[in-house]
Design a protein around this nucleic acid. Structure first.
Length: 361
DNA sequence: AACTATTCCAACCGCAACAAA
DNA sequence: ATTTGTTGCGGTTGGAATAGT
């Protein structure tokens, strides 16, 4: 795929990566890590710019990538996080193990956007479109905004053990509660229990404590959360040769999984090293929601998949208690079942191996 | 079967932030 | 303090794949 005419002095290859190029890059990173992207092409014998190599690795070659369709839980989480963070794809992706910002962005643009519009929700604002059937045009109160400033997030947290009146619009929870009426209007309340404080991690109730471990509070408050694409994390991610650990110079100790929570430092790590097995998504749980949808008249009952999602395995269960570990063990990767070697590598891959430094630098 | 329209996603671009010189 | 190089992020695009006619 040739996106743009080159124009640079040195002719660099563009477009889709060939399997040979992939192999070169993977072999290089397996050997040396992913330190200096600008020098990688030369050393690895690739006629690509470093930027392109970096992108290829992050978006496609990383052994920890979870390919395939987004689960309902992931979709819910993306919608919810987008209502808070906006187009901060890297931050959103940081909360979705195995997903890249590019993947999340594409999923949003190609699927969720459309879906929300069909439901009468403006994907940009997460508010229902003003329609004759619902609300008067341009009459949406400010307090109903689902786009939250940092201050709003903080203000919505409990102070002195008491919940402040939530500034969170009901819409932002509608997605997971299945209480949106056909025209996109909001039905049902329960706002007392679902202030964004639970998201922000400032709430001290149990629910929030659990969730705080899931969704890094820093992520929602402008703190630094290294995304999975950050170089520091990637260095740890490169702790195993994608092409097969046997081909690397790494010692057994370097390759072995390190699940010690004390090593968790970044948002990614911390979100995947929770010692507690009691993680859950507050909005999903709060949404046991059938009890919360006072007015189910327009909710479309079971037709709404968001409500149905509540009956499914909790995403956090998948992530922390089995599925994600299993995913690690099974080594899902871009090459799927046909790449036994990559599977084997991914089985040993561990994002927590912070002590590993493959970089030559 | 051939053509057109649409969808999806990998990859590119430009910019900003940061670090090192 | 300034320059230069590198990295990361978000927006955009082009083309392959798919659906529709």
């Amino acid at each position: 795929m040739s996106k743009r005419p080159g124009g640079t002095k040195k002719r660099l290859k563009r477009g889709l990566w060939s399997p040979e190029e992939d192999e070169k890059l993977m072999n290089h990173i397996a050997k040396y890590g992913n330190g200096c992207w600008s020098s990688i092409p030369k050393i690895a014998g690739l006629e690509r710019c470093g930027k392109s190599c970096r992108l290829r690795w992050i978006n496609y070659l990383r052994p920890d990538l979870k390919r395939g369709a987004f689960s309902q839980e992931e979709e819910d989480l993306i919608i919810h996080l987008h209502s808070i963070l906006g187009n901060k794809w890297s931050q959103i992706a940081a909360q979705l193990p195995g997903r890249t910002d590019n993947e999340v962005k594409n999923f949003w643009n190609s699927f969720i956007k459309k879906k929300l519009r069909q439901r009468g929700i403006d994907p940009a604002t997460h508010k229902p479109y003003a329609t004759a059937a619902s609300a008067p045009p341009a009459a949406t109160p400010v307090s109903r905004s689902a786009v939250f400033s940092e201050a709003e997030l903080i203000l919505s947290s409990p102070v002195g053990g008491q919940h402040m009146p939530p500034l969170v619009s009901a819409e932002s929870y509608v997605y997971s509660r299945g209480s949106m009426d056909g025209a996109g209007g909001v039905v049902g309340g329960c706002s007392d229990d679902v202030s964004l404080s639970s998201l922000s991690g400032y709430n001290n109730n149990n629910q929030t404590a659990d969730f705080a471990g899931y969704l890094d509070a820093d992520a929602l408050h402008g703190g630094v959360i290294p995304s999975v694409s950050s170089s520091s994390t990637l260095n740890s991610m490169a702790g195993v040769s994608p092409g097969g650990a046997a081909n690397t110079n790494a010692t057994t100790d370097e390759l072995c999984c390190n699940n010690n929570p004390s090593n968790s430092g970044s948002g990614f790590e911390s979100s995947t090293t929770q010692s507690s097995s009691n993680h859950h998504l507050p909005w999903l749980e709060l949404g046991s929601i059938s009890s919360c949808t006072e007015d189910a008249s327009g909710a479309g009952a079971g037709a709404d998949h968001y409500g149905a999602a509540l009956d499914e395995l909790k995403w956090s269960d998948y992530v922390f208690d089995g599925g994600y570990q299993q995913y690690h063990q099974q080594g899902q990767c871009i090459y799927g079942d046909s790449k036994a070697a990559a599977d084997a590598a991914a089985a040993q891959f561990d994002a927590h191996g912070l002590g590993i430094n493959w970089c030559l630098n």
